[in-house]
């Protein structure tokens, strides 16, 4: 690392065994042009304070481990760079709206349960043996869901969502985007099974259309559009239920 400058990083610290509430600690970190915020944290851990706790893994913005608040904004620390904050300083905190496990690591359990609840797998019209080969899916059919399949589950959108901050019962942006991903897949017929989740009080109607989730999404998934498409679908579903037997809205 060709070091040319130093920057101050203020980090939220909280240890569940010893601390009654979080506090902040400041470190001075040398950096070069290419030094990511994650590398800044790694420097602290390697050289200054081995007790600083945070998650990371791939370093290339695909594993979704290293989301944190940087100066109040949800971001992946591996693809944000210290130079962008210099000569100012950084304040790094765990993702908002999620319980802190320790320091910068948050509890992901609630999201993982929500993800499992939306039946995030193909529910096929009829079972097809592997020997019969792949389903046909044109590029246009794939395009209808592909964007929503690019979610890396980094939880930045949950930290951005004011509704989730008020009521963690809300299914939230990433889970609703994934639900829409499967509902929009030409190989899937599970929409009727998933509609009760969409229609529920904690489903799409809880969203207040702020759109900050899509703004912070590092992968361009645009969960807000998934949620709002489902508001239309949910409305139609509501009407069709009075007009036809269940399942006709597929």
């Amino acid at each position: 690392m060709a070091t040319h400058d130093e920057i101050e990083i203020e980090v939220l610290r909280y240890h569940p065994e010893t601390d009654s509430e979080p506090s902040y600690r400041t470190y001075r970190v040398p950096f070069a042009h290419e030094t990511s915020v994650l590398q800044g944290l790694q420097y602290i851990k390697d050289r200054l304070d081995g007790s600083l706790t945070f998650r990371w893994s791939c370093r290339m913005a695909i594993c979704g481990s290293c989301g944190m608040m940087i100066n109040g904004v949800p971001n992946l620390t591996c693809s944000a760079f210290l130079r962008e904050y210099h000569p100012g300083k950084l304040r790094i905190e765990p993702l908002a709206h999620l319980p802190i496990e320790r320091d910068l690591a948050v509890d992901q359990t609630d999201f993982l349960e929500k993800l499992a609840s939306i039946q995030p797998y193909i529910i096929p019209a009829e079972s097809k043996a592997v020997d019969e080969g792949p389903f046909t899916q044109t590029p246009a059919q794939r395009e209808r869901f592909y964007q929503y399949s690019e979610c890396i589950n980094c939880l930045l959108c949950y930290a951005a969502c004011p509704q989730y901050g008020l009521d963690s019962g809300f299914l939230g942006p990433a889970a609703l985007a994934l639900l829409h991903r499967y509902n929009s897949d030409s190989r899937d017929v599970g929409k009727a099974d998933r509609m009760p989740i969409v229609n529920a009080q904690e489903g799409v109607w809880a969203c207040t259309l702020v759109g900050y989730c899509s703004e912070v999404c590092p992968k361009g998934v645009d969960p807000a559009s998934a949620v709002n498409r489902n508001k239309v679908i949910s409305t139609l579903d509501y009407f069709f239920r009075f007009m036809a037997p269940r399942g006709a809205s597929e």
Binding site: P124, V130, R187, D188
Partner: peptide, 15 residues
């Protein structure tokens, strides 16, 4: 593919 993997496709919908 049956489990939903979004493999890239040819224009005719084949793998």
């Amino acid at each position: 593919e049956h489990w939903g993997c979004p493999w890239s496709r040819k224009d005719d919908g084949d793998i």
